[in-house]
Computed example of a mutant assay.
Amino acid sequence: MPRSITEAIILAGGLGTRLRSAVPDLPKCMAPVNGVPFIAYVVNHFRAQGIQRFVFALGYKSEAFESFLHTLLPAGNYELSVENEPLGTGGAIRLACSKTSEPDIIVANGDTLFCIDMQSLAAFHARKNAQCTLALKPMETFSRYGAVQLNEDQSVESFTEKRYFDQGLINGGIYVLNIPAFLQKELPYKFSFEKEYLERFYKEGTIFGMAANEYFIDIGIPEDYSRAQVELPAGNKRGN
C-alpha cells in the first residue's frame, strides 16, 4: 500500500496584480475572505487531508505571512522559503524543495482552493509511478483557463492554450511531485513550472492527470474573489 503524503509546498508569492483594485498591498493568497486570509482555507483543507508539514514559497510582501502563520499553524509545522528575487513558479518550487524531507510531496497554488482527496491523488501518483501528477477539474463553458487532454492510461496527451471550451479538464493547481526526478531535470534558474516543466516534459509519459469534480475556486480575478465571500463560510469550516 502506498505511503500517504504528509508534506506540501504552497506557492504564496504571487503579486495579485489583477486583484489590486479589490485588495491593495497584500499578496494574493492573503486577501481576506469573510475576515480570514484566503490561505487559511487552503491550509485547513490540506490539514484535514493528512498534510502535516508545510513549506510556504514566498516573495512579494513575505512579512505579511510571518505575522499570520504562527496563528494558523503550530511552530515546527511549517517553514518559509523566501525568494530574494522573482524566480517564477518553477524556480520557487525548486528553492522550496530544499526544505522538504519526503521524495513525493504536494505542490499547490495558495490562491486556489480545490477540495480534492489528497491521499487518493497520492495513491494514483504511486500506482502510475509518475514523476508528476496533476489534479484536474472538469469544467464547462470556460475561456479563462487552458485545457489538459489525457491519454487512455491517464498520462498527459497535450496542453491547450486558453480559448473558449464547451467542456474540458483544467489544471486545478495541485500536483504530486517526485522531487528527485524533478531536480534531475535541466532547467534554468528562473522558470515557469507550467510552461518549462509540465509543457516541456509531458511527452516523456511520466506526467499524469487525475480528474476530480470537487469544489474549486481561484481568487485571481475580482469576480471570483467576490464569489469566495459568498461561497466560503465565515469560520472557515467548509466541507468537501
Rank of each mutant, 00 (worst) to 15 (best):
R94W: 00
D104G: 06
V82M: 12
P103I: 05
D111N: 10
Y145I: 06
S101V: 14
V156R: 08
T160H: 12
S143R: 12
A75G: 05
I116E: 00
N171A: 09
F165R: 02
T112Q: 01
P180F: 09
G91R: 09
I93L: 11
I179M: 13
F142G: 08
T133V: 05
I105W: 05
E186V: 12
K128H: 15
T112L: 00
G91F: 08
A92Q: 03
K137V: 09
A96K: 06
A108N: 03
A122I: 11
S101A: 12
A75W: 01
A96Q: 07
E79I: 03
A147E: 11
E161T: 12
R127E: 14
G110A: 12
I116S: 00
E152Q: 13
Y175W: 11
K137R: 13
N178M: 07
L113C: 02
R144I: 09
A92M: 08
A135G: 06
L169N: 08
P86A: 07
L183I: 07
N84E: 11
A92D: 01
V156A: 09
I93V: 13
T160L: 14
L187T: 13
E79Y: 05
K185M: 14
P180L: 11
L177Q: 02
S155Y: 05
F182L: 14
G172H: 02
I106G: 06
I170K: 07
L177V: 13
P86R: 07
G173Y: 04
I170D: 07
Q167T: 14
L87C: 06
F165Y: 15
E157W: 02
G88V: 04
L150E: 00
P86K: 05
S98Y: 08
A130L: 08
E157I: 00
S120E: 15
S158P: 01
A123L: 13
L121P: 02
L80D: 06
M139I: 10
Y175I: 01
Y164K: 10
N129D: 15
R163S: 14
I170V: 15
L121T: 02
A126I: 05
N151D: 12
F124D: 03
S155A: 10
T89F: 04
D111V: 00
T100G: 02
Y175E: 01
S143V: 04
F159V: 13
E85S: 09
L113T: 01
N151W: 06
V82T: 15
T160N: 11
